[in-house]
């Protein structure tokens, strides 16, 4: 009332305020889901980190134990997808991108260890889920272009992949500690293949570039492990 009439139509700011308030409500709803996902990601990595101290023969136990937390994360991602799809995707995606990457990384690592479609026999290590396969596992679309809905982006996949390579680098060393001289070779080849893929990307100066620049050190780390093994004649013969 103290504002002299004429200059500002009060409806302008009322309208803006309600728009901003709506966004805040959306954010709050998403925040709850994202926090739940964050917790489940921690559970996944808690279980999967046992792979670093588990001999290959006992790996099935780890895989079994990881089923539940992964299932939980899948459900939460579905919930997130449902809530997020009501909004323009890129308006809010920075709210969950980080947590989705962590979930992807967990699932990539789990699949690499042989957890996907695990039949109870000897796990088959070394597979890389494609973006599409990840989407199927999580039951969400990937790399959408024509629809403005929740999906997993290429960037999220690639970032998760770099984190997974870090995990594998660790595993290469820890496998040796456990007396497993075969897995480092497998990891070596895998990491090199991933690295080769990253090298053909034209990356700009962003987070993906930084993470991908770090890959060469991981390649070197794993090569060092293989070098140590071959120097001591520890490399299993059939592999050479």
């Amino acid at each position: 009332m103290s504002a002299p009439s004429g200059m500002i139509d009060p409806a302008i700011f009322e309208g803006l305020q309600s728009k901003v308030d709506e966004d805040t409500t959306v954010r709050d709803e998403l925040k709850d889901i994202v926090q739940a996902l964050e917790k489940q990601n921690r559970n996944i990595s808690f279980v999967l980190s046992r792979a670093h101290s588990t001999p290959f023969a006992d790996l099935p136990n780890v895989l079994k134990a990881s089923e539940e937390p992964i299932q939980n994360a899948i459900e939460t991602v579905s919930k997130l997808a449902q809530a997020a799809s009501k909004q323009p995707y890129y308006k809010f995606n920075q709210m969950w991108s980080r947590q989705v990457q962590d979930a992807l990384q967990g699932i990539l690592f789990w699949a690499w260890l042989g957890g996907k479609d695990y039949d109870g026999n000897e796990p088959k290590c070394g597979c890389l889920l494609t973006l599409e396969e990840l989407g199927e596992t999580l039951k969400v679309p990937t790399n959408l272009k024509d629809q403005d809905k929740f999906h997993i982006t290429i960037e999220e996949y690639l970032l998760a992949l770099t984190s997974m390579v870090e995990e594998l680098t660790r595993l290469a060393r820890n496998a040796v500690t456990l007396g497993d001289y075969e897995r480092p070779l497998l990891i070596n080849q895998f990491v090199k293949d991933v690295f080769a893929g990253f090298q053909i990307l034209n990356l700009k100066n962003d987070i993906l570039r930084r993470k991908s620049d770090g890959l060469k050190y991981r390649v070197k780390d794993v090569e060092d492990v293989v070098y140590d093994l071959s120097l001591r004649n520890l490399v299993p013969k059939k592999q050479q």
């Binding site: 890389l128 494609t130 973006l131 790399n143 290429i154 690639l158 090199k192 293949d193 991933v194 080769a196 893929g197 990253f198 053909i200 990307l201 034209n202």
Partner: peptide, 13 residues
């Protein structure tokens, strides 16, 4: 690398 075709698609996008 067996992942090359996949990365080529990523590169384009």
């Amino acid at each position: 690398s067996p992942f090359m075709p996949m990365f080529e698609g990523f590169r384009t996008e």
